[in-house]
Amino acid sequence: MSTDIDIVDATLRHGDRTVVDRLSLSIPAGQILVVTGPSGCGKSTLLRAIAGLRPIDEGTISVGGHRVTGTSGDRAMVFQDDALHPWRTVRRNIALALGLRGVPRGERRAETDRWISEIGLDEFADHLPRELSGGMRQRVQLARGLAGAPRAVLMDEPFGALDAQTRTSMQQLLIRTLHAHPATVVFVTHDVDEAVLLGDRIVVLDHAGAGVRRIVDVPRPRVDSVENRAARDEAAAALVGGDQIREKVPA
């Protein structure tokens, strides 16, 4: 089950420096919103605030109608670094999320094995993270995040460190997994092609404290089409500063 996310006049600061300034944005349940923009514009800071990993300085962030005041099992965070427990096998890393969700011990093995099959790592179930490739570790992290049945998934450049072939494979795995296990997603990336492939909407942030440069709707999400290529060009122009329009984000 997915949920809506509402951001109202959110301001986030690092010390005296404003990183995100009075941002308002509504993300409907089940939508994949991609956030991009130049380095230092506040993408990851915003993601951590939605996750409840850092306080908001002004305004509000609500998930499913409940104001975010800390972390919650309803929100899963997926990082660029896999963040797996190095002493736990693939199976035990995923089973941990099921335990936190309250799945009875007697049911965890079968459900864990289903997740391992979904991510294509049946032969590596008893391997430790150090024995896996980067792409494999990211598969485990994705499964662990979604196995907790979150209603919102927050992804901070999760495929940024992968080679091109592995990255493409992980993008397709994410699409398939979210089709089977729907959630509202906020996905941060620097890659415009990735943004258009995955997103229903793309928010292009300006430099720190300057707000939103443009919001681009993807006409046919997760489908290769001429209309999507036009959306890609629009997002790319905004990202490099070719579009100087500053738009107020609709509520």
Rank of each mutant, 00 (worst) to 15 (best):
D6P: 03
I7V: 08
T11H: 10
G15W: 08
V19E: 05
D21W: 01
R22H: 13
L23D: 07
L23M: 09
S26A: 15
I27Q: 00
G30D: 04
L33M: 13
T36C: 10
G37F: 04
S39L: 02
G40H: 09
R48E: 06
A49F: 01
A49Y: 03
P55I: 02
D57G: 04
E58D: 11
T60K: 01
I61T: 01
G65F: 12
R67Q: 15
G70T: 08
D74V: 12
A76D: 08
R88H: 13
R91Y: 06
R92Q: 14
I94Y: 12
L96H: 14
A97W: 06
L98T: 03
G102I: 03
G102F: 01
G106E: 10
R109Q: 11
R114I: 10
I119K: 13
D122W: 00
D122S: 12
L128A: 13
G134I: 08
M136N: 02
Q138K: 00
R139D: 02
G148H: 01
A149C: 11
R151D: 07
A152V: 15
F159K: 10
A161P: 12
R167C: 08
M170A: 03
M170S: 07
Q172R: 11
Q172N: 10
Q172H: 09
T177H: 06
L178N: 07
H179M: 05
P182L: 01
T184W: 08
T184E: 10
V185Y: 05
V185W: 05
F187P: 01
T189E: 04
D193H: 08
A195E: 00
G199K: 00
R201A: 04
L205M: 14
A210N: 13
A210H: 13
I215A: 09
I215L: 13
D217H: 08
P219M: 04
P221H: 00
R229L: 13
E234N: 04
E234P: 02
E234C: 04
A235L: 02
A237H: 12
G241I: 03
V249I: 13
